[in-house]
Design a binder for these strands. Structure first.
Lengths: 149, 149
DNA sequence: CTCCATGCAAACACTTTGCAATCCG
DNA sequence: CGGATTGCAAAGTGTTTGCATGGAG
């Protein structure tokens, strides 16, 4: 299966044009799966392969890809909008374990809250469509280093 | 119990001075419990009672109050940092039900994940200290209006 | 009286927008 | 070709900082 053609096809389906700028931006996000790059970092990486690209194009493309559902924007409250690829097998987005000591971010695949959503509807008359969970604490490395329980 | 003296005392304990600017900022956050005001909104409200105050003071004070644990900053990914009062009875922060239709934000007090944290430690070697959950979906009003299930 | 805290304006950092030039289809 | 897309620079937005003045303790 050919990536370029796949990407091309998805764009066309939505009535958008294929450009190498868009391909390069998408590639960088895909190639850095799990790194939660922010827009500036993506811009820098794309520039290595395509130096003429402008910041505005990167921002516009990221918004486009997010709207198309190919990537997700995540906010770790550090002042940057960060992006990760959308894996369409996920019904709900995965969750993040954020280390308070070193700032590392680990992904966790379990769907914790699926069973709880019905209860929320009963108790709060609120129909849950998606949820987002962030856990703050200490990662394996820092637990060892800090010698805490 | 006298609010002004309480607030004064907490500041002194941490080695900070009592000023009427600080009191006014804190008061506005307390008086608007549940409204998740952003910094600009807080600035506007404080100015009604204390017109000479500057934006910088509001930002500095909000950071100070957060650091002291009197208020929490929350990020609803709308480009603003929003604040809510910290209720120290809460072991974990409460969670938010965010309506995708009208944008309303409702608070939910249940602690959903307390029991799950041990499992996370087993599975991921990650020691959870706190967690933050946001549910996206449709609120009671919008469900009625939109006539969805 | 001594610093801490304030107000002001300028500086910042990230993102968005306007517009002419360019390129895809 | 014609309209979507791009690059550039300028404008926006929310927030932070430098510094002289002011006020709490």
């Amino acid at each position: 299966m050919n990536n370029q053609n796949d990407f091309n096809k998805i764009l066309k389906e939505k009535g958008y044009k294929f450009t190498s700028q868009r391909k390069h931006v998408f590639d960088v996000v895909v190639e850095n799966d799990g790194k939660h790059l922010n827009s500036q970092e993506i811009y820098e990486l794309v520039r290595k392969k395509y130096p003429e690209i402008g910041v505005a194009t990167v921002y516009r493309t990221l918004a486009l890809l997010e709207e198309m559902g190919l990537i997700y924007g995540v906010d770790f409250e550090d002042g940057f909008r960060r992006y990760e690829i959308a894996k369409n097998e996920e019904e709900h987005r995965h969750h993040h374990l954020i280390c308070l000591e070193c700032g590392s971010i680990k992904e966790m695949e379990e769907d914790l809250l699926g069973t709880i959503e019905e209860r929320i509807y009963q108790n709060n008359q609120f129909k849950v469509i998606n949820h987002r969970v962030k856990f703050y604490g200490y990662c394996e490395n820092c637990i060892t280093k800090m010698n805490i329980k």
